[in-house]
Amino acid sequence: MSGLVVALWIANLVLDTGGQLAFKAAAGDERAGDGLARWKYMLARPWIWVGIGCYVAEFLVWIAFLSLVPLSEGVLLGSINIVAIMVAGRFLFKEKLTPLRVTGILLVAVGVAVVGFGA
């Protein structure tokens, strides 16, 4: 894989994880209330905009990435995002990592590594 491909892969990973965590932070704020007031509260704070910005950038990074690698390989390498989200959720939102989750995370990570080194 070329340097550009690796850079796009990492950028996709960071933007996807950052976007999801920002949306989680926006949606999980308990002071936000309900209904329309909740949306007003969320839109007046930065997190939801950080999330949207990440997703817009990710859209372009992902197209660029997929145009440079075979699609089957790209979609397998992109699975690493699942791992990043779960690990970040553990540290930032204190989500539990049960043995079954850890097994799943390790299997996905090993699979991505096998595909990545084989490419």
Partner: peptide, 13 residues
């Protein structure tokens, strides 16, 4: 091989 590991991981999750 990589795909099988990834799919098994997704099923675990």
């Amino acid at each position: 091989i990589g795909a099988v590991a990834i799919i098994a991981g997704i099923v675990c999750l």
